[in-house]
Every structure is written in C-alpha cells, then in structure tokens.
Design a protein around this nucleic acid. Structure first.
Lengths: 116, 116
DNA sequence: GTAATATATGAACAGTTATTCATATATTGA
DNA sequence: TCAATATATGAATAACTGTTCATATATTAC
C-alpha cells in the first residue's frame, strides 16, 4: 500500500501528527480514564455525584444495582482518578475528583444534545 | 441493608441525584461515546486528527497498526459522532467531528497532568 | 468482646470487544 | 474494460470486562 500523495496541507497534518503523538504511557492513562467513565452504570454514579458527596448506599439507591456491583465500579472510578472518597464514621463518602470531571460530562452531553 | 442516616446535606444530595438522573437512553449514548474514545488505538487517531483532516493511510502511518484495524476503529469513532469524513477522489479524509471533541481531550489531559 | 451496619474484594461465569485474515467495494487512469 | 490504489467489512478467535455470590474488613454501639 502506498500512502496517498495529495494536497500538501494533508501531508503536513500527517507529519505533525506523527511528531506530536503523546507518549504511549500518557495515551494509556487517558484511555483508561475514558474507559472508566464509559460504562452506563459508572456514568450514572457520576451523574449522581454531580449534586455533592454521597455514601455508597445512597449511590446504590440512586443508580440501582447491587451494593457489590456499585462498590466494584467505585473502585474503578477511584483508581482512575475520576472520584475521590473520605471516611466519615461508618460511611465512605464519594465525590467527583475535581471540576474537570463535571466539565467533561457536560461537554459530552452538549455534543450529543442531551439536556442533563 | 439500611441506608445510612447522617448529615441532612447528604440526604438531600441523594434525593436530588435520584430525581435528576438522565434518561436511560441518554446515559447509554454518552457511555457509548466515551467507550469509543477509551481505547488507546482510537485515542491515538484523535490525537493525530488534532492537526487537521487526514486520509486513512496517513492515519495508519501516524498511529501504527494495520489498515484493516484502523478502518474498523474509524468506523466506531464515526458511528459514535466522534469523527466525520468526506471523500476526495480515491481518499476518505477524516477529521474530528466538532470542537467539543478536542475540548474533551484537552480537559482529560489537563486532569491527568499530561502535556500534549 | 459481640452484634450490627457499611463497605470492599476474590473467584467464576457470561457477555463484549479488538485484532487478524481474507475479501469486497469504490475510484482513478490507461 | 483492466489494473492499481484506497478503503471497508464479515467471520473467527483471543483477550478483556461487568456482574454475581460468598465472604472479608472496618467502624460503631452495647
């Protein structure tokens, strides 16, 4: 296969793309973060946490599913820097890690013309 | 299991979370979009397309892998509204669907302290 | 210490997905 | 029409992932 040989403009874009490709490690981290928020159940958790921190059983109540499933999902979200948690007595309170998370959610919804 | 019964503040967040949960259909669409950009190979395609539209073989050159694999991935990106394409002679030129896509990428990188 | 509540986790199974290979379609030029 | 180039796609397999079930850990109240 021979790479196409048209417009100079496209060739320049291709060369810049090759030069400026982020490090494999960074690509993997970004991919893992998006994967963390790409399952409906985990996304519901984020929508739930928009309004503030919540304990696990409140999250279960808001998104459905079993306590075990939600706990597994929270672990994935936390491991990828999407949510954070703190203990308060018997409860662990979860919240969105920072303002970037909500901003990404809102951008995605705007892109898809969802009103959330 | 009994839902925890602490701070009024948390209870209100839980109730608002339940009331304002987006429709299942919208959650699925957002999740599918994030899933589309959650694989390293597809993410590399997006990083490549930051600099402008490119034909398939240029994309293959920038991200690696086989032509077939890249073509499959492009189909997924396009089906989920992440990239768009137009024909120009023998070539199909791909580009990011709109400015939201780049904005989401940049937010994610900022969140993870990647310099892209 | 014991019971109760809240949360986390390991293993196993089922469903999903990415890649490869072979092949098909579409465009261009002769 | 034929050959060459560019892109797409169906099927199969291998790898990954989410859920469930059972159980473990941690905190509090008694």
């Amino acid at each position: 296969m021979t790479v196409c040989n048209h417009e100079e403009e496209h060739l320049q874009a291709a060369e810049r793309a090759k030069r400026s490709m982020p490090k494999e490690e960074d690509v993997m981290r970004v991919a893992a973060s998006f994967k963390a928020i790409s399952e409906p159940c985990r996304l519901k958790i984020l929508f739930a946490l928009r309004h503030g921190e919540m304990c696990v059983l409140h999250i279960v109540g808001a998104v459905g599913g079993t306590q075990s499933a939600v706990s597994h999902q929270l672990r994935i979200l936390k491991a990828n820097g999407v949510v954070k948690s703190r203990r308060e007595g018997q409860n662990i309170l979860y919240s969105l890690d920072d303002e970037h998370v909500l901003a990404v959610l809102e951008l995605a919804c705007a892109h898809l013309h969802c009103h959330i």
